[in-house]
Design a protein around this nucleic acid. Structure first.
Ligand SMILES: [Mn+2]
Ligand SMILES: [Mn+2]
Ligand SMILES: [Zn+2]
Ligand SMILES: [Zn+2]
Lengths: 138, 138
DNA sequence: AAAGACGTGCAACTCTTGTGCATTAACAGG
DNA sequence: CCTGTTAATGCACAAGAGTTGCACGTCTTT
């Protein structure tokens, strides 16, 4: 917990109680979290606080927002080395249609695609859907 | 217009006036359409009608829904040959952050990615963001 | 300790999408 | 062409996620 506090301070984020708890919660999970999940995990806290905490974390680049196509935004901690740069950092995300969880596949970078003339890419999002490694597939 | 009517009938869709107009509208555009755009293009019609028309078209597989990450669903006509099969049909979508339009790049198929052990892919969505070929890039 | 900056809780709101139900239009069979 | 059945449309309303304004509380700095 002290480590988390140091980390937040180093990132210029005030280490309030809620922020420490939220960071810890997300760090212990191997899958991405939605605002609703945080709401259920921290029933004592307000949705707005959780919402703004995620916003702050996102702005300070310690979490990244994941759009997995479900219409519900998910958030996951960033890698230490991540700069979210196209071609080097952008990894794909996997959404399991069975357990409904979304996770980062940080080793799987988004493949480079050749665009038609006149198109310039600055960002990309690749979501693969299917059955994850924790769900029996048959 | 007669052609469109024949096409809809062949697809087991009643060729009502609105459906013909909506299909024609989408066929003339090179970019995907949102419900809002249809609403503005057909102010005489009801939002619900447009909404359900898109639903019908989607169910009959003559349009496909595009999730470009803007939070607003877009729709575009399917290719004649499209079966929406993973690995052969799934193309990428390009969202221009300048003109805010989304379009199908039907020639650019989603590259095959190797997933970690235990993951099984059934679907994929790749959205590339940047500047399109109709927007000046500098 | 005082002042200022920042975080939190509450309420209300926006925007998109979706649904129930009555009315109207299209189609098929005579 | 008329009629009954089925499907499409129009209207009202609602669910859900995301977002903002404002008052109040807490922390930091001087
Ligand atoms: Mn990720
Ligand atoms: Mn497409
Ligand atoms: Zn799973
Ligand atoms: Zn453009």
């Amino acid at each position: 917990m002290q480590e988390i506090e140091n980390f937040l301070v180093q990132k210029e984020i005030r280490p309030t109680a809620m922020r420490l708890l939220i960071y810890k919660f997300m760090a212990q999970k191997s899958v991405a979290s939605s605002l609703n999940e945080l709401e259920q995990a921290f029933e004592k806290s307000e949705r707005t606080t959780l919402y703004r905490t995620l916003k702050t974390f996102e702005k300070k680049a310690i979490v990244h927002r994941i759009d997995d196509g479900t219409g519900i935004a998910k958030f996951a901690l960033c890698e230490d080395t991540c700069n979210c740069e196209l071609g080097t950092d952008l990894h794909l995300h996997f959404h399991c249609t069975r357990c409904n969880e979304t996770q980062c596949l940080t080793e799987q970078k988004i493949p480079h695609v050749i665009l038609p003339k006149g198109f310039k890419a600055t960002d990309a999002n690749l979501v693969v859907k299917g059955i994850c490694n924790k769900c029996p597939s048959c």
